[in-house]
Each structure stands twice: as structure tokens, then as C-alpha cells.
Computed example of a mutant assay.
Amino acid sequence: MTAAGQLQSAPILGVSSLVKRYDTRTVVDDVSFHIEAGETYGLLGPNGAGKTTIISMVAGLIPADSGSIELMGAVMTPTSTRVKGHIGLVPQELAIYPDLTAKENLMFFGRLQGLKGKELRQRTDLVLDLIGLGDRAREQTKKFSGGMKRRLNIGIGLLHRPTLLILDEPTVGVDPQSRNSILESVETLASEGMAVLYTTHYMEEAERLCDRIAIIDQGRIQAEGTGIN
């Protein structure tokens, strides 16, 4: 096997024996999984199961009490500034400015991610098309529906071409049309080789999108297997 082949076969993300405690309560208990390039891995479970805590550790937002996280072969901790640049994080909470247009929001966050000039303009236009907001690019986002805001939130996480996209329940509270648009966007990204970590409590979403699914409850992986796709 060539060196390039070996690189392609290595997991994008590897999580091993992850543990997180708050006082005497263990909220993540010995969680391990990995994600390959082009794979969508789902964390399926009810609210409070530990999904958001897991992705917060994976993204380097909070430290693990024990266990390890590796992204593209590099150790991930809250101080791992360089490796964090390979992650696109889309949180449950909207992170957009309502008085700016969709395009202005993307341009602003793109600059924060180090993009500029022609590259920034091209990436902004490409992302607007991907999330289905090209025709609303110059409209203030405070006029957007909840689903449109969610789609823009995802677009912000895509601007810098992340290797791993983390989506934390991105369809909560959105209308059916926007929900379908979000799911189609995720399918497109995975087909183009992006690794995706997707949390949800909707079984039908996990079945549609995910190559493998881990059922999370009480901070532990209760079962893991392949999706139907």
C-alpha cells in the first residue's frame, strides 16, 4: 500500500475511553468511536444523554477528565489551536448577527477563520448556494425563518472547508422544508469526502444520514451499528 493509501485509510477522528464528570456525576462514561473520511457518524439519544458534552470535548471546547481524542493523528485538547482549524462546529444555539445579511454574516465569520479577498468571496457564494440561500443573500437575517437561520448557521461552519464537520441537533425546531434541505446538504458534504459527526434524537434522521450510529444514554454507548443507507 502507498503512503497516500495509508493516509486515506486512517480515521479522521479517533475517540478512546472518553470520560467527563461534573462533581460526583459522570455525564460521559468510557465512550470510544472513530470516523473515517466521507463517513457520517451519528450520536443518537434523548436530551441529556451526553451527546453535546461529547462533541464539546471533541471540538476542544472543554477538557476530558480521562481518555483521548485524535484528529488527523494529532491530539485534541482545549489548547490545540492548530488542529481546531480542521473542525467546523455547528452548535444548537444560533451564532449569527440578525442585523447583517446572510452574505455579510458569512463574510464576517470567514475573515475570523482566516479567509480573505477572492477566496473569501468565492467560498461565500459557494456556501450560499449549498445551503439554498443564494437568492436571499442580501436580506437581513432577522427576517429569516428559523429554518433559514439554521441553514446559515451550518454555512458558517463550512466556510473554511473543515475536514470534520460537527452538527449538534441542527434540525431542532425547523419546518419540514428546511429540515429536508439541511439533510440534503449533509448528504452532499459526506459524498464529497467530508467526515461528519451528527447528533440527533430523531431516529429517522440517523437512519437516513448515518453510515454508523451509536445509541447514547446516561453518558454511555449502549449500542453501535450501521444505518440503513
Results as ranks from 00 to 15, higher is better:
54 I>L: 06
117 G>W: 14
148 M>Q: 15
47 N>F: 06
78 P>V: 02
76 M>N: 02
188 T>V: 07
94 L>C: 02
116 K>H: 15
138 R>E: 13
157 G>F: 07
157 G>T: 07
213 I>N: 07
178 S>P: 07
189 L>N: 01
189 L>K: 02
99 D>R: 15
206 A>V: 03
45 G>Q: 03
30 D>E: 09
154 I>Y: 11
75 V>W: 03
146 G>W: 10
194 M>P: 00
193 G>N: 03
130 L>S: 13
53 T>L: 10
222 Q>Y: 03
102 A>Q: 12
46 P>V: 08
86 H>M: 01
102 A>E: 13
212 R>L: 10
2 T>W: 12
31 V>H: 07
203 M>K: 09
192 E>Y: 00
176 P>T: 11
66 S>F: 03
4 A>F: 13
17 S>G: 15
228 I>M: 10
101 T>H: 04
2 T>K: 09
115 L>S: 07
129 D>P: 01
210 C>H: 06
37 A>S: 15
213 I>C: 08
142 K>W: 11
94 L>R: 06
85 G>R: 15
142 K>R: 15
192 E>D: 01
3 A>L: 13
207 E>Y: 09
25 R>Y: 14
178 S>H: 10
147 G>H: 05
3 A>D: 11
128 L>P: 00
23 D>F: 11
5 G>I: 06
30 D>T: 05
133 L>E: 04
143 K>D: 13
148 M>R: 12
25 R>V: 13
157 G>K: 06
61 L>Q: 08
4 A>H: 13
84 K>Q: 03
109 F>S: 09
169 E>N: 11
90 V>F: 02
179 R>P: 07
24 T>A: 10
211 D>C: 05
95 A>Y: 01
159 L>C: 05
110 G>V: 05
173 G>R: 09
66 S>Y: 05
52 T>F: 12
120 L>S: 06
68 S>M: 00
27 V>R: 14
226 T>P: 14
88 G>W: 00
66 S>N: 05
202 Y>F: 10
31 V>C: 06
171 T>L: 09
12 I>W: 10
107 M>S: 14
124 T>Y: 10
69 I>W: 06
61 L>N: 04
71 L>F: 09
90 V>R: 00
54 I>S: 01
104 E>T: 09
208 R>I: 02
134 G>A: 08
200 T>C: 05
41 Y>K: 11
159 L>N: 04
221 I>Y: 10
63 P>A: 02
144 F>A: 00
186 V>P: 04
226 T>W: 12
7 L>W: 15
200 T>I: 00
109 F>C: 12
210 C>V: 04
197 L>Q: 00
32 S>I: 04
108 F>N: 08
171 T>K: 13
185 S>V: 12
29 D>S: 09
10 A>T: 08
173 G>L: 11
181 S>K: 15
57 M>K: 05
115 L>H: 10
54 I>G: 01
145 S>P: 05
33 F>R: 11
10 A>G: 04
77 T>P: 02
213 I>E: 04
169 E>P: 08
216 I>S: 06
127 V>Y: 01
22 Y>G: 00
101 T>N: 02
186 V>Y: 07
152 L>P: 01
46 P>Y: 12
82 R>A: 15
48 G>L: 01
180 N>E: 14
65 D>Y: 04
10 A>S: 13
66 S>M: 03
102 A>T: 09
129 D>L: 05
164 L>D: 05
125 D>E: 11
